[in-house]
Write a protein that binds this DNA or RNA. Structure first.
Length: 299
DNA sequence: AAGCTACACAACCGCCCCCTG
DNA sequence: CCAGGGGGCGGTTGTGTAGCT
């Protein structure tokens, strides 16, 4: 038996809200509030709308202090950073941006940020002059640099058969791991590079930019290598500190050798579900990442 | 000027979580 | 403890608009 519908679909108006309906809902909300029941609200307010539709309209458009329009660079950065850490938990991300709604942020991400960070054209309309294309390309490169300033900029394809990873951009290592997953790669969680979440055909996966399912840590007894808990948008996540102590991946920290990293990659256990590598900052992280990528190729 | 296309954003759908009785 | 229902959320679709041909 299916669930009873929340409202009588046949007698409910759908589609865009008219100014009159907006006014009616706003006035009712200002006088009475939801009364703890959105489903009953439309009837009380004299609206021929589904309660959920009223809720959405209120939360996303009518309620006070809603910000619409241009997102600032700071907001962009916050969204990207949180998306990298917790994925598409729009409500959590919205909670960090006063005046912004989850729907707004979701739309903004889907229509602009995602394309921008994936290197797709961001212009409002198709350019039709070479000059514009050139300018657009430069703009994209600048924007990528702005968000991921270390070595994440994409340049050339990476051959999966090449064991020597020195000098190969991290983004290509990432891409290659996505394209050629190993049985170990299912245990690697990276954030900070491109924002992909990819699965291979056999079900193993590399999750990039998403760490919430990663719960357990390894502590190998060595100072500055272990797991550290972080709160991102109210969600606790943990990451393996390959980059050194304190703040995670510091520029001055060391890269771990294959021997040190391999047990973690090769032998996931209940106590060690995988790696969580902060790839956002600096050369030391690159070294760590290269070690892991190298380990995966050798395993 | 008309038709086409791409884009932005509002709104809907349906699933899941969690509270309550 | 369990079932039912409302609320919340993320994904998807629909619609209006602006630029291009």
């Amino acid at each position: 038996m299916g669930r009873a519908p929340c409202c009588d679909k046949a007698n409910v108006k759908k589609g865009p809200w008219s100014p009159e309906e907006d006014k009616q809902l706003k006035e009712y909300m200002e006088k009475h509030g939801t009364g703890g029941n959105w489903i009953a609200l439309p009837q009380k307010a004299g609206l021929r709308r589904c309660g959920k539709s009223c809720r959405l309209r209120w939360l996303n458009y009518l309620r006070p202090n809603i910000k619409h329009g241009d997102f600032s660079d700071e907001e962009d950065r916050i969204i990207c950073s949180l998306f990298a850490n917790i994925g598409s938990r729009w409500s959590i991300i919205a909670a960090q941006l006063p005046g912004r709604t989850d729907n707004d942020i979701k739309n903004y991400w889907n229509t602009k940020l995602k394309k921008r960070l994936m290197g797709q054209p961001t212009s409002h309309r198709k350019p039709h002059h070479q000059q514009q294309k050139k300018h657009q390309l430069q703009e994209q490169q600048q924007q990528q640099q702005q968000f991921f300033p270390s070595s994440f900029a994409v340049t050339a394809p990476f051959s999966s058969s090449a064991p020597d990873l020195e000098g190969i951009p991290i983004s290509h290592l990432l891409n290659s791991l996505v394209a050629h997953p190993t049985h170990q790669s299912g245990n690697l969680i990276v954030f900070g590079g491109d924002h992909h979440s990819c699965s291979s055909s056999d079900g193993s996966s590399i999750q990039i930019g998403y760490g919430r399912d990663f719960n357990h840590g390894l502590y190998n007894g060595r100072e500055n290598m272990g797991f550290e808990s972080h709160l991102y948008g109210g969600l606790e996540t943990e990451k393996l500190l390959l980059g050194g102590g304190g703040g995670g991946c510091e520029a001055s920290s060391i890269g771990y050798s294959f021997g040190e990293v391999k047990p973690t990659i090769a032998c996931p256990t209940d106590a060690c579900h995988g790696l969580y590598l902060d790839g956002r900052s600096g050369a030391a992280t690159d070294t760590s990442f290269r070690n892991i990528a190298s380990a995966m190729y050798h395993c």
